[in-house]
């Protein structure tokens, strides 16, 4: 698979480390949200067959986190964004 890095251009997926569903960006607040919210966050997944937004880390490149939209049935990648931009658009500080 080739990931079209927003800054570096097309890069081999082997340069990246995979983390999982991009919903992991939206971490609950440890002080106020409680254990159920953290259980849901840490352990439960949508796991869709089809488009999946997911976090990839460019470990052997510029060390950026990306949000890759990839089809889990065909492996086709349709969108790549900097996770920083996605997080800020969600109103998170980082």
């Amino acid at each position: 698979m080739i990931i079209n890095h927003p800054i570096l251009g097309p890069r081999d997926a082997q340069e990246f480390v995979y983390l999982g569903d991009a919903a992991l960006i939206d971490r609950p607040d440890g002080m106020t949200d409680g254990i159920e919210a953290f259980h849901t966050y840490a352990y439960l997944r949508d796991n869709p067959a089809g488009d999946h937004r997911e976090l990839w880390y460019h470990e052997q490149g510029d060390r950026s986190w990306l949000v890759v939209t990839r089809n889990t049935v065909t492996h086709e990648i349709t969108k790549v964004e900097l996770a920083r931009d996605v997080a800020r658009a969600m109103g998170r500080s980082t």
Binding site: M1, D12, A13, Y18, E54, R70, T72, V73, H75
Partner: peptide, 13 residues
């Protein structure tokens, strides 16, 4: 392979 997949085939690496 290490990424979510429902394809019954993997990649060359």
């Amino acid at each position: 392979d290490g990424y979510n997949s429902y394809a019954q085939r993997g990649n060359l690496p």
